[in-house]
Amino acid sequence: MTDVVIAAPILAPRKRFQLIRRLLAHRSFRIGIVLVTVLAIAAILAPLTGIEPSAMRVRFRFRPPSPEFLMGSDNFGRDILTRVLYGARVSLWIGLVVALLSGIVGAVIGVFAAQFRAFDAPVMRLMDAMMSFPAILLALGITAALGPRMESVIIALSVAYVPAGVRIVRASALVVRELDYVQAARIAGASNARIMFHHILPNSFGPLLVHMTFVFAYSILAEAALSFLGVGVQPPTPSWGNIIAEGRDFATEAWWIMVFPGIGISLAALGLNLLGDGLRDVLDPRLKGA
């Protein structure tokens, strides 16, 4: 018998950064990432306007947009541009934290539910019960109970968006746990923790990431809705939602107070949705081309 035969060990050329390359080739992802990045940079650079967001200057009340006040000013003479930029910090921050928090909590609960059958039924019934409330009503109830603060908004929205995350992660975890590489780990005697965190979670992450970008967008919208209802971020701290809420009384005389934060919300939601669409197209194996 001959010795171990080595077939010519030629490897294909390395395929590095395939994911990033595919993402950047995706048109709506490109538009989305540009929009979101521009908004984020604008929020970070907010202090460059040189004006305090809550500085009241009675002389300058209700100035329409002009070279001096690019987005006009409000009933207290505050500069809307400055407030919109500082508001972006608050709104984007809330969106980001809610997306991360609900995503992480959802992922952990989802993976546990998929791995431990005894845990599964009660948890999923609880999630069903939570999902039977509209998310915004649930959030409204929670902020009302916790008191209107930014932290309450974050907690309320995170709780409201957890069930959807749980479902998504559980569904893909149930598929992944039957795959051969998980079986291989089981044969080798891997612990539940290893199977969950080495194998199932990283491979259930794609759909969750897509979901998180959408939660990011919804949270910005939901914060605006809560602020509009008076239980969101409280003035004088500006958020896109409460700037609009404050401008409501002057909608006919000073349209610019509501319109500019509204544009901010729309652009953020649009950018995040485009980004999420791109991620979904690239990460979802069912949509992959031949």
Binding site: T2, A7, P13
Partner: peptide, 15 residues
Amino acid sequence: RRLYSIPGRIPDINE
């Protein structure tokens, strides 16, 4: 008999 095997691999469509 021992199977004959064609060495190497089928080229990738991009290669």
